[in-house]
Design a protein around this nucleic acid. Sequence first.
DNA 1: TAAAGATATATAAATATGTGGATATGTTGG
DNA 2: CCAACATATCCACATATTTATATATCTTTA
Lengths: 98, 98
Amino acid sequence: MEFKDLNPESLERAAGMLKAIAHPLRISIVGCLEDGTKRTVTEIHNQLGIEQSTASHHLGILKDRGVLGSKREGKNTCYFLKHENLKTILNCVSSCCQ
Amino acid sequence: MEFKDLNPESLERAAGMLKAIAHPLRISIVGCLEDGTKRTVTEIHNQLGIEQSTASHHLGILKDRGVLGSKREGKNTCYFLKHENLKTILNCVSSCCQ
DNA sequence: TAAAGATATATAAATATGTGGATATGTTGG
DNA sequence: CCAACATATCCACATATTTATATATCTTTA
């Protein structure tokens, strides 16, 4: 897949996905969810020390842009990485921005 | 390098770098600059069909966040990818967002 | 040094994003 | 059905982004 050939819509989608990840809190969220881990909104909200509504909001963005998937499990909603190789992006960017 | 261990400043830097790339025009710019290519502002501005000031502005963002480097060559300023492996990010995201 | 080409910056208006408090919605167990 | 817990949405405010026009700065050459 040569991204050079991306049509405008795919370009928008790719940008949207990257933009979803490109936020300190959301990078941390993706970090929490590596290796197939699943986490609830409350777990994220406690682990990162942010408001519940803020956690839900950011999780929603990541889900909306296709970065995360979610699954209801009783009272909880579990979020998980939809593409395991997205961690590649984090490793790459963290190695570049030293 | 485990990005999980990123301190807040590095997290900001990583997010800033990703945010810089996470824009349709800027993805296209990075695309133009793969494989060690160098391009002037005018070339980018013509190739992408955007205003000169817009091209300069986006190139400035990419340079500021460490994605691109630049070099004066006579009247022109040439921009180039600072980390060749950044194309990995584009390939990764484009493969994920199908 | 003046003119012309190339790039960068200032400005302003429209739009988008981030945040948290309050509230609504969904879910389970009694 | 009701109480509680969990999550999502709404609202309002602050801040950031995007874009283009106009203008300023830089660089070469005549």
